[in-house]
């Protein structure tokens, strides 16, 4: 189970900002989203969307623990 956070326009696409999703790896998590929410999955495919696990940016598949926090970050706009 991972706590998933969406920021910016991604939360608008999904209609939620934060929820738990059953997954043991980032790949599994993406698979779950692809099945359950194809529109969000498509939005996550944009190359500018970055992924953070436990607040560190990652670029490859990683294992997720029971308390992992996964954040999907659209391009950062600055303040």
């Amino acid at each position: 189970m991972a706590r998933v956070l969406l920021f910016g326009r991604l939360a608008d696409v999904a209609g939620w900002r934060e929820r738990d999703i059953p997954a043991r790896t980032l790949g599994e998590l993406r698979g779950w989203i692809a099945t359950e929410d194809p529109a969000l999955f498509e939005a996550l495919q944009a190359p500018a969307v970055r992924t953070a696990v436990d607040q560190s940016l990652v670029s490859l598949d990683v294992d997720l623990g029971p308390d992992s926090e996964v954040a999907f970050l659209p391009p950062m706009s600055g303040g």
């Binding site: 910016g8 326009r9 608008d12 970050l73 659209p74 391009p75 950062m76 706009s77 600055g78 303040g79």
Partner: peptide, 19 residues
């Protein structure tokens, strides 16, 4: 580049802003 996501609301609705 700072990690913020910015939304502007005006007469035509709201939109997300990118750099």
């Amino acid at each position: 580049r700072a990690p913020f996501w910015k939304k502007e609301t005006g007469p035509d609705g709201a939109r997300w802003i990118e750099p």
